[in-house]
Write a protein that binds this DNA or RNA. Structure first.
Length: 572
DNA sequence: ATTAGGG
DNA sequence: CCCTAAT
């Protein structure tokens, strides 16, 4: 008799499981099907467990056999299914795998409690779980890898409980106090199986939306009415605790699946998200620019690498008087306060940077920051400024190169994919970025020194405007930063500063005056700029501005005229 | 790859 | 300084 009953249960379990494994193949995996799947599995496990318990000590063998079946067949079957690619829905799959484990595990632990330890059994269980976790990890949802590990740890504890007999169980339970309390309390009755499925999905929704809706799977959007009913489970926040709780709860009854669904780790990861985003909205430029410009590694990246050491470079004495001639026309022109400290050149960098910071880009770029975080995590080596080239193979990285406009669209997907990376990143971010932010200077923003400007002027006088790359090569080969574009920009600014440019309108004149106050450009330099501007009008279109009288002069001036100009300037 | 120009 | 379009 006793054999008959258990065996029946076993048979049922077998059939159910098999059917369940097959079912998903037929249709597309909908969330409902997944839920049913989980539920049934859990139920199976529980049924088996009940049988085992009722069968008494004499049936230990049978129970163990059952366990073996579960562990060997079911658990092994899962990975194969996964590998076969039946479940590509990440969340579904992940939850399913976990569910599976939980169901089996709970039965296992219970059995052990009842009948004592069975080493072989435990070993098989743990092995199977490792398998599952592996399969799951490489499939999609990496975040679940963490959970799986946690889970395994928890389960180990349970094993220990089983081994150390019932008497030891309470002490072991301290690992997850909630588990104990739940086990002892009558809470297991507060949920009926009839509402199980609803509870499942609802709780999912509740938790997800609560956490930040980023992981919410579109399939299961429902009203979370039942949420309140399970506030207890939802309140649990620590992932491990949740897992443990779930597994132990499983031994009780139907409540198990309900609470099992609430995965707290999610919240943790979400926190990881929110935090980095707000912490530093920076770092974007570096990664993005370096990533986008991976093509020009030779110049650009090299330049980035040198930024650090260069910063400490000693400023030549001549430049101390007029340290740098930053020409932040548009931005600083608006800051009247700048006029009150005209010669506070040192602080100019900071003010400028802060302005850039608050300019607004950072707000819209939060999403990209996430991706960048991911990038940072991908190549584990902590790179200060350089090391930009080696991360292109990862999907996250390529995504990070998306335009800003696309970020909003892709951000959601990215988040899911990156949640694992984020956790790893947090540390990195703290020591990496904070330091940079604190130091006011931004990597890509370097003040132009007088000597640099002189070189630029010299170059322009020799090659004329527009041949920036050549000028760069000849005059700025030493300074890896200062791309040709930089030279061009600087020249543009110099033209503005010298007043040669856009001799237009009253507003410009006034602004120029204002700028003069805080821009300590040496007159000699300005004069030269003026000179050169006359012969090499920058916007080449409007060259006929001044030197209309001597066309050939502007054509082949170069050295002789340069000398002449130089002399005149020096004479001044 | 370089340049011009807008932001 | 960054980004993009046009050479």
């Amino acid at each position: 008799m006793e054999n008959g009953h258990p065996s029946l249960g076993l048979e049922d379990g077998t059939i159910d499981v098999e059917r369940l494994l097959v079912e998903p193949q037929d249709g597309h995996m909908s969330m409902d099907s997944v839920i049913c799947f989980n539920e049934k599995i859990t139920k199976n496990a529980m049924d088996i467990e009940d049988v085992s318990r009722s069968s008494g000590g004499s049936d230990t063998g049978i129970a163990q056999e059952r366990k073996d079946f579960l562990n060997g067949e079911v658990l092994n079957a899962m990975p194969s299914e996964i590998e076969a690619g039946y479940f590509r829905l990440e969340n579904d799959f992940c939850s399913m795998g976990e569910e599976y484990l939980l169901g089996v595990e709970f039965a296992e632990s219970i059995t052990n409690l009842d009948y004592g330890s069975s080493e072989g059994l435990q070993a098989s269980v743990s092995d199977s779980q490792i398998q599952v976790s592996t399969a799951g990890s490489d499939t999609v949802c990496r975040s679940d890898l963490f959970r799986t590990y946690d889970f395994r740890d928890c389960q180990k504890d349970h094993f220990n409980v089983g081994r150390s007999k019932l008497s030891d169980a309470p002490s072991q339970c301290t690992i997850s106090p909630r588990s104990c309390s739940l086990q002892n309390s009558g809470k297991s009755q507060n949920s009926s199986r009839s509402s199980f499925q609803d509870v499942l999905s609802d709780e999912n929704d509740g938790r997800f939306s609560q956490a930040g809706e980023m992981f919410c799977s579109p399939k299961t959007k429902r009203n979370s009415d039942v949420l309140t009913g399970h506030g207890d489970a939802i309140d649990v926040i620590e992932g491990q605790e949740t897992l443990t709780t779930t597994s132990v709860q499983a031994s009780n009854t139907d409540v198990l699946p309900t609470q099992k669904r609430s995965r707290k780790p999610t919240k943790r990861y979400i926190d990881e998200f929110v935090d980095p985003i707000t912490t530093h909205s920076k770092k974007r430029r570096e990664v993005s620019s370096s990533t986008v410009k991976y093509k020009s590694l030779g110049v650009k990246d090299h330049k980035k690498c040198q930024v650090g050491p260069k910063a400490i470079r000693v400023v030549p004495p001549e430049e101390f008087s007029v340290v740098a001639i930053q020409v932040p026309f548009g931005s600083l022109a608006n800051k009247e306060c700048a006029e009150s400290h005209p010669y506070n050149t040192g602080a100019r960098v900071d003010s400028r940077n802060s302005m850039t910071k608050s300019k607004g880009k950072c707000v819209t770029l939060h999403n990209q920051n996430i991706m960048e975080k991911c990038v940072t995590a991908v190549d584990v080596k902590k790179r200060g400024d350089c090391g930009t080239g080696q991360k292109k193979t990862d999907g996250c990285v390529t995504e990070a190169q998306l335009k800003r406009k696309d970020e909003h669209a892709t951000a959601a997907h990215q988040k899911k994919r990156n949640e694992c990376a984020i956790a790893v990143i947090r540390k990195k971010r703290d020591d990496n970025l904070t330091a940079e932010e604190i130091s006011g200077r931004r990597k890509h923003h370097r003040l132009w020194t007088i000597s640099e400007v002189r070189k630029l002027i010299e170059g322009v006088s020799q090659y004329g405007v527009g041949r920036w790359s050549r000028i760069k090569k000849l005059f700025f080969s030493a300074s890896a930063h200062r791309t040709s574009v930089d030279l061009k920009d600087k020249w543009r600014n110099l033209l503005k500063a010298s007043g040669m440019q856009e001799q237009g309108s009253q507003t410009q004149q006034g602004e120029k005056k204002r700028n003069m106050a805080w821009r300590p450009l040496p007159k000699s330099i300005l004069g030269r700029v003026c000179e050169l501007a006359t012969m090499y009008p920058y916007p080449k279109g409007q060259r006929l501005k001044i030197c209309r009288d001597s066309p050939d002069r502007s054509a082949d001036i170069t050295l002789s005229d340069y000398r002449r100009i130089l002399r005149s300037i020096n004479g001044n």
